[in-house]
Simulated assay, not measured.
Amino acid sequence: MSDELPDQARKGRGAVSNAASARFPQQDRALVDDGWGSAEEDLDAPTRTVVGRDASRSAITYNQSPDVPFDRSINPYKGCEHGCIYCFARPTHAYLDLSPGLDFETRIFAKENAAELLRAELAKPSYTPATITLGANTDPYQPVEREKRITRSVLDVLAEANHPVCIVTKNALVARDADILAKMGAKGIARVMLSITTQDRELARSLEPRATTPARRFAALRELRAAGVPAGVLTAPMIPAINDHELEGLLASAAEAGADSAGYVLLRLPHEIKDLFAEWLETHFPDRKDRVLNRVQAMRGGKLNESQWGTRLRGEGEYADLLERRFKLACTKHGLNRLGTTQRTDLFAPPARDGRQMSMF
């Protein structure tokens, strides 16, 4: 007879477990002591990441959300090794019969033919250009990008077509592509937003364990701005009683690093994330768990998540209103968001259907 063991934090991972409350479970999994050493498992040993192939037949994903300033995006990877415990993309792994917990950050799927698919889609006579966001769901510069270089291949196609792009990332690796982004930025068709949640290195280690450190993200911002790339920061998410007190400091550091714009998002806990986040709080901040969740509920109509358009990214109530006022005041003080961020679409020219084919003109 085996005895079920409690879940424990693993070195270098954000989720404490594979959420048992996944919406589409085909099987239940639990850590047990079977008498063969399970109880002595080394939780400090790195958990291996496995990279598979994403067989999607299209590169561009379209949305109709009124809450975001774009209607299309490209996600070179499904799953994200950064392991951010609050990541709103985690529930998408449930559709792959995998857990939004540890599976999401250890089972990664790479869309290796993304550039080829994108080229074909942009070349269609019916295609109308509008800003494409890279990183709307999972990070396009997570660790596997160093080897796969899928994001860079996508940027090559977008640059060839003079197609506008906005990148959202938590990884300093984005500075690797400053050569492409600087040329696109000079044409008004590229922008980078570095997502920086905290300046506390230890908090970042548990919140987003495999993202680059906050200091390196600020360094990447400086490098991009020095190269002439339009770039800003997203202080996202703001978590009550965990990092919300850092808002003004984050924006001040962003301005000092050269950021020209900023944004913020309130913590969201849709689907399985609410259980994963509660589990994370119990592990890392047990003394604040009730306080954090109660404040989230106060901003979400008594629930841990509210999907209503218009309020899901900002929340409602006194605390949410105060957070918004603090953000706007800090942006004004540091000269952020003074310029528009609209990107040009008039330069777009469909790329050659075959990237190996040279133009005759």
Rank of each mutant, 00 (worst) to 15 (best):
L250N: 02
N137M: 15
T138E: 01
Q199A: 12
A161Q: 05
A227P: 01
Q142L: 13
G188R: 03
R210K: 11
A231T: 01
A178C: 05
G249W: 05
V192R: 00
D179F: 07
H245E: 11
R149C: 09
T169N: 08
A175R: 09
L158G: 03
L122Q: 01
C166R: 15
N243M: 08
K124W: 12
A204I: 07
T212I: 02
I132N: 04
E112D: 13
E116C: 04
F218W: 09
D177V: 04
A120R: 14
V165L: 12
R216N: 13
L194A: 11
L181W: 10
H163T: 04
E246C: 00
A175L: 07
A178I: 03
I239L: 09
D139P: 01
T138C: 08
A252G: 07
L224H: 01
G228H: 03
T133Y: 14
I180C: 07
T169C: 10
G135D: 05
A175E: 12
P214V: 06
R216P: 01
A236D: 09
A110I: 10
R149L: 12
E112P: 00
P230C: 04
L247R: 06
V144A: 15
L122G: 00
A123N: 08
R152C: 11
R222A: 10
R210E: 08
L234S: 10
A227C: 01
A252D: 11
A211T: 01
A252Q: 14
F218Y: 11
R217P: 03
N162Q: 12
T169F: 10
E121V: 08
L203C: 09
L194I: 13
V174C: 11
L224V: 03
L224C: 05
P125N: 06
P230H: 01
L207S: 03
L181M: 11
S206F: 12
M184H: 07
P214R: 02
K183Y: 12
P140L: 10
P230K: 03
I196D: 06
A161H: 08
A220P: 00
L117H: 05
T212Q: 03
G232I: 08
A175P: 05
Q142I: 08
N113I: 08
N137Y: 13
L251N: 05
Y127F: 15
I108D: 02
K170R: 11
L250G: 02
L118S: 00
L122V: 03
G185P: 04
P214I: 07
G232K: 01
P125V: 09
I242G: 00
E223G: 00
L207K: 00
A120V: 12
Q199M: 15
M238I: 15
A241S: 15
A215Q: 14
I180D: 03
L194T: 07
A182I: 08
P164V: 04
R205I: 02
E160G: 07
A226D: 13
